[in-house]
Amino acid sequence: MEELAAVFVARYNYWGVIILMGIGLYAMIAKTNMVKKIIGMNIFQTAIILFYISTAAKYGASIPIIAHGHGAQGHGIRAADYMNPLPHVLMLTAIVVSVATLGVALALAVRVYWNYDSLEEDEILNQIKAGQLNRK
C-alpha cells in the first residue's frame, strides 16, 4: 500500500496535468461565454504539452547541450545525464499550432459578435430560434 502511495505522490507532475485538463474541459463545456471557451481550449492544449515535457524530464539530468562537445574524443556520453530532447522538439511545433488555432477561434468569435451582438452562447441560440420562428 505504501509503495502504491509513493508511486502516486512521486508523479505529481502528472496530477497537475490531469487537474489542468479538467479545468480546460470544464471551461469548454460549462462556460457559455465564447472567450472563456477559447481560454479553456488553450489551457487544455498547454496541459497536453506539459504531459509530453514531463515524460522527457529526469532527476539529476541537465539540459540537452553537450559541454565540450567540439573536438572531444575518447569518452562517450551518458544519456542519463541529459533530458530527452525529442518531446521538446515535438512540443515546439504544438505551441505554434496552438497559437494558430487561437487566432482562428478568436476571429470566428469576433465574426459571431458582429452578427448576433453577443458572445453568450444561450443568447445566440435564442436569437437563432427567434429568427426561425419569424421566417415561418
Partner: peptide, 17 residues
C-alpha cells in the same frame, strides 16, 4: 518548463504563448 529543462519550449512559450 524552464525548471524542467526544456529551455527551447520555455522561450517559445514566453514569446508566443
Amino acid at each position: 518548463w524552464a525548471v524542467m529543462g526544456a529551455v527551447d519550449v520555455a522561450f517559445t512559450e514566453a514569446s508566443v504563448g
